[in-house]
């Protein structure tokens, strides 16, 4: 009975699927955007690879790029100013950086909303209070939060780097870039609302590193990787130690297993 019902059901499913398989498909036009879209460039950083470590100087340069360029539109919601101590700033420097920003607060005496200078314990300053305000100020585009951008995009680091350095190409003839958008073949729709954010010499690095677009893009991506994964270095260290330990344990447990079985295995 089970087999009969099962076979009947199986035949019905197969019939429906075969029908669906044979139904002719509507011809689809290849999407012109897909042909223009490009995969991210191959790039590497000091922290690339399983044993890589962040370059603190690069992270600080990247923070500078974020602060002077990106932060006017993009937030870093999940990062606190105090976290900057982990990339080599002193507590006093962190305090000074935080104090440059005003954050909303409540007046303890009147209960009115006021602003006060940010403290190291505060989260990073938000350029817009909410999504609606951000869209209103940006021609209806929403500048995404950057604290997780490296994890929130496929091939995150290479993607952001390619995007930042992917401006300046002329679109192929016949391809219209809508008003207010910019051509960038690394963006999924190849038309991006963000105008070219980096130009040579836009920031002045304290350590004398020439501020080329390529250098600034690399630096800010490194900083954003740290912002997305501040635990990266300790994670790799703990992981490596655990693997070494487990390898020894595996050898020991294998020998134990062989010895326990020594008198029964033919």
């Amino acid at each position: 009975m089970v087999r009969l019902v099962g076979m009947a059901l199986g035949l019905v499913f197969c019939f429906v699927l075969a029908w669906a398989f044979l139904v002719p498909r509507e011809a689809t036009q290849p999407d012109p955007v897909k042909l223009l879209h490009r995969e991210p460039k191959e790039v590497s950083w000091p922290h690339t690879g399983p044993f890589g470590k962040f370059d603190r100087a690069q992270l600080q340069r990247g923070f500078q790029v974020y602060k002077e360029v990106c932060s006017s539109c993009h937030g870093l919601y999940h990062v606190h100013y105090r976290d900057l101590e982990k990339i080599g700033f002193t507590p006093a420097q962190v305090k000074a950086i935080a104090a440059e920003y005003e954050v909303p607060a409540i007046d303890p005496n009147t209960g009115e909303t006021i602003t006060r200078p940010a403290l190291p314990t505060d989260k990073f300053y938000r350029p817009f209070p909410n999504e609606q305000a951000a869209r209103a100020a940006n021609n209806n585009a929403y500048p995404p939060d950057l604290s997780l951008i490296i994890k929130a995009r496929k091939n995150g680091e290479s993607y952001v780097y390619s995007l930042l350095t992917g401006y300046g190409e002329e679109p192929p003839p016949g391809f219209e870039v809508p008003d207010g958008l910019n051509y960038n073949p690394y963006f999924h729709s190849v038309n991006i609302a963000m105008a070219q954010p980096l130009v040579d010499g836009q920031v002045e690095y304290a350590d004398g590193t020439p501020a080329t677009v390529d250098q600034m893009a690399k630096d800010v991506v490194a900083f954003l990787r740290w912002a997305a994964e501040p635990e990266l270095e300790v994670r790799r260290r703990v992981g490596l130690a655990s693997l070494l330990f487990l390898s020894i344990l595996a050898v020991l447990s294998y020998l134990t297993y062989r010895r326990v079985w020594a008198d029964v295995k033919p």
């Binding site: 655990s242 693997l243 595996a250 447990s253 134990t256 297993y257 326990v260």
Partner: peptide, 25 residues
């Protein structure tokens, strides 16, 4: 016990190696 506990313990360490490698790297 002890035959299959020993065997299971050995495979458990292999499992942990794969698990740790993925979770940490």
């Amino acid at each position: 016990h002890p035959y299959f506990t020993a065997k299971d313990f050995f495979t458990l360490t292999l499992y942990l190696i794969a698990f740790v490698a993925v979770s940490f790297f």
